[in-house]
Amino acid sequence: MRELGVINERKLIYQKHATDVNWEKALPNCNWVAVIIVNDKSRPILDEISRKIINHNACYVCCAGSQSELLHDLVDEEIVFREVDVEGLNLPPFDIITTWDNNIDDALWYAAFTATHDTERIDTVLCLDTTGLDIEETFRKLKETIK
């Protein structure tokens, strides 16, 4: 996990996703937005990501990249599954809002400036990079140019 600074009074965190890294430990447990960049991931990995994001009470989930719409749909499906079928699985006491955009810049801007929540104050934006390309520098540059 790398703290990249502050954008619009929200702490910006960058975390690489890998199957051999315990990336879940970097996830906040309250008052946060997830920006997840997904390209070419298998369904089990996308399912794991959606479950862990929900388990950590994300207020908002912004998906970006070539599989953004798919991950958005999977997060929504997991939420509905937890609402109607299974007791004992974590679901926060508020609605998790999800969105998607192929463009990473737009997703980060949205997470920093537009994502709000009716009942929760948002103070952290966590960028989960599943691309394997190490795009941390891209996020650093975006932080400086997005105002």
Rank of each mutant, 00 (worst) to 15 (best):
T124P: 03
V75H: 04
D73Q: 14
V75S: 04
E136H: 10
I37A: 12
D129H: 06
H117C: 00
V125H: 08
A111P: 07
L126A: 01
V75P: 07
H72W: 12
T116W: 10
W32T: 06
E77T: 12
I37W: 13
F81I: 07
L71W: 10
V38R: 07
L12E: 02
F94K: 04
A112C: 11
I146A: 05
T130V: 10
E120T: 05
R82F: 09
E136D: 11
T130Q: 06
N90K: 13
V75M: 05
V33H: 06
E77H: 13
T145K: 14
L46W: 02
H56A: 01
W32N: 04
E78Y: 06
D129K: 08
S50G: 13
V80F: 14
D40I: 01
D47N: 15
C30T: 13
L4S: 01
G132I: 08
R140N: 09
C62R: 15
H56M: 06
L142W: 01
H72L: 02
I104G: 01
P44H: 09
N103H: 11
L70K: 15
E3I: 13
T131W: 07
I79A: 06
V6Y: 12
A58Y: 03
I79P: 04
N8H: 14
F81C: 07
G88D: 10
C62D: 11
S66K: 14
S66L: 10
V75I: 13
I96W: 11
E9I: 00
K25W: 00
C59H: 04
K41R: 15
A58R: 02
T98M: 08
E48S: 11
V80P: 00
E144F: 00
H17M: 13
V33P: 08
N22T: 03
L142G: 10
A111W: 09
I54R: 02
I54A: 01
I13V: 15
N102K: 15
P92A: 10
I53Y: 01
Q15L: 06
V38M: 08
K141P: 00
E83Y: 08
V84C: 11
F113R: 09
S50D: 01
I104W: 02
L27K: 11
T130E: 12
P93I: 03
D47C: 03
L4F: 05
R121K: 14
D105N: 11
C127A: 12
V35P: 01
T98W: 10
V35R: 00
V61D: 03
R51I: 11
L27G: 01
F94L: 10
T124G: 00
L108C: 07
V21A: 05
E3A: 09
V6G: 01
I104H: 05
E9L: 11
Q67E: 15
A107C: 10
D101V: 12
Y14C: 06
T138F: 11
E69D: 13
I45F: 07
I122P: 06
S50K: 04
G132V: 05
T124L: 07
